[in-house]
């Protein structure tokens, strides 16, 4: 019959986690987290996405141990250029006789760097602008949202191009450019959520306890906006990776000889017909990681988004 508990025999730990009468703050929080985890693992695709993301993190962390060759220094240019995948070079070699597998492994660090940096710059900015704007309303709202509109009106890649052109190419500038163009949607989401929360009784109740406006925003409004933002940011990761790769492809992101996936695809394009693996392998890496983040985002939405959750 449907509805049978997923774990046949609740262990002591599980009973402790699911207790209706937690004895401490931590037990309550862990229990809540555990319930979220349980509904997350109900979705096999979400777990696959999580696995891909974890794999990305592990690969980036242990690149030194995993990669068989140097990502920068190539082999013999006369005999080891553009070799097809083989036992020695699992994914073949590129035009500089470098092992593509090793370059992809090290490239994960750059991808992860971009993703993490963009999300820690863009998310707090968007969250703060959105909640402040939504909570205070009036002219603050008007000013902040018009600024947001201005940023929203720029095409992401074009602004990034202009930015990189002004500051000079490089992965840091690419990150800043992407971050600048990605916070406005977060601000809009946070504002929409805040507008719904603002007039609720529980906000009126803290107001009546004499809480200051920053305290209400940080302690009571932000926690309710964070989950939908996390979902949105995760779903945006794929786009961020693709933008970074696009900038790399155009030669405006990571500079040679850094093993950035987008730049690798760009170099491989010259040999696309005869040595397809040079462009295809980093392309597959971009595809898999983007897919992983998307699947994870979908799974998180089911767990975190109170409106979608049943």
């Amino acid at each position: 019959m449907a509805g049978a508990p997923p774990f046949p025999q609740p262990s002591g730990l599980q009973a402790w986690l699911l207790s209706a009468e937690p004895n401490s703050r931590w037990q309550a929080r862990l229990g809540r987290g555990y319930l979220g985890w349980r509904s997350f693992t109900k979705n096999p695709l979400a777990v696959l996405g999580l696995a891909i993301v974890i794999l990305l993190v592990l690969v980036a962390a242990f690149a030194d141990f995993i990669a068989p060759y140097s990502p920068i220094v190539g082999g013999d240019l006369r005999t080891e250029r553009l070799l097809p995948p083989s036992e020695t070079y699992w994914l073949g070699t590129d035009d500089q006789a470098r092992d593509i597998f090793s370059r992809i492994i090290y490239g994960s660090r750059i991808t992860l760097f971009v993703v993490i940096l963009v999300s820690i710059i863009a998310t707090p900015v968007g969250l703060l602008v959105g909640t402040v704007s939504g909570y205070l309303g009036g002219w603050v709202d008007t000013v902040l949202m018009r600024i947001t509109d201005i940023f929203l009106a720029f095409p992401r890649l074009v602004l990034a191009l202009a930015f990189v052109a002004a500051l000079g190419p490089g992965i840091e500038n690419a990150v800043i450019a992407i971050a600048i163009t990605s916070w406005p949607p977060y601000a809009r989401i946070a504002r929409a959520e805040t507008l719904m929360i603002r007039n609720s009784d529980f906000i009126a109740a803290v107001k009546l306890q004499g809480a200051s406006t920053p305290r209400i925003i940080m302690g009571h409004v932000v926690p309710l906006c964070v989950s939908s933002l996390i979902v949105r940011v995760t779903l945006d990761m794929a786009g961020i990776i693709l933008t970074a790769a696009g900038l790399g492809f155009l030669g405006l992101g990571a500079q040679p000889p850094m093993p950035e996936w987008g730049a690798m695809v760009a170099t491989g394009r010259n040999y696309l017909i005869d040595q397809w693996w040079v462009a295809a392998m980093p392309g597959i890496a971009i595809f898999v990681v983007s897919l992983g983040f998307n699947l994870l985002g979908d799974g998180l939405r089911d767990v975190l988004d109170p409106k979608a959750a049943k």
């Binding site: 019959m1 449907a2 509805g3 049978a4 508990p5 509904s39 109900k42």
Partner: peptide, 14 residues
């Protein structure tokens, strides 16, 4: 109406 029953099969049980 005789012996009407409505059951909901939820994740946590019926």
């Amino acid at each position: 109406v005789e012996d009407l029953r409505v059951r909901f099969h939820l994740r946590t049980g019926t």
